[in-house]
Design a protein around this nucleic acid. Structure first.
Lengths: 95, 95
DNA sequence: TAAAGTAGTTTAAAATATAAACCAAATTTT
DNA sequence: AAAATTTGGTTTATATTTTAAACTACTTTA
């Protein structure tokens, strides 16, 4: 029960990224950075972890000559996110 | 919004302790340890953090000659827990 | 009374998170 | 057209957190 929570989703920034990507399907690096009010370095590190876990895809392109990093949630990531919340829902205050 | 999540409740063991104490109002150390399937050392450390934050009270007595540690949630802890979940609920999958 | 068990705490190492320093290229200022 | 500044990130070094293992203190059993 309690140990079924996804360790990757017990971090504020990673949880925030996943949450936003669930609704948005796609988000740019600086949008996430601003929305989550975190440093670029921290965001960069956490995105890498989500990518390593196969929870998100990261696409690197250019926009107006500047590098642009775009993130999307994967099927695996979506499932992990839903599972995580199913477990959270089993807590008393939700019943 | 996202940054309103309580850092203390983003740890699995602390979240588990709080969750159990919300329903039980009182729990012994070894009950928590077994329920949460964690080592005693880890539990001891996390309980201390919850106590330092004023989220739980820890009472130390003796039972059958052995030390007995009993935990209860505080008003402050209950409020923090509820607040944390209110914020979680605002995530899309809950809507 | 020696060995094993109970109930935890302390510690030290491993994992994680974070800010600060850095990089490459683009743009703006002087 | 240099020099300085900005953009969009990544890398790294430090600080924090987590965790298992070692330890304390006492009790029970053999």
């Amino acid at each position: 029960m309690l140990k079924d929570l996804d360790p990757l989703l017990l971090n504020q920034i990673r949880l925030g990224v996943m949450s936003l990507l669930v609704s948005l399907k796609e988000a740019e690096f600086n949008y996430l950075r601003e929305e989550l009010k975190c440093t670029a370095g921290n965001l960069s590190a956490q995105l890498q972890k989500l990518k390593d876990a196969g929870y998100i895809d990261i696409e690197k392109t250019f926009k107006n000559n500047y590098p642009l990093t775009t993130c999307r949630i994967t099927k695996k990531g979506l499932e992990a996110f839903r599972r995580h919340f199913e477990h959270l829902k089993s807590y008393k205050p939700f019943k």
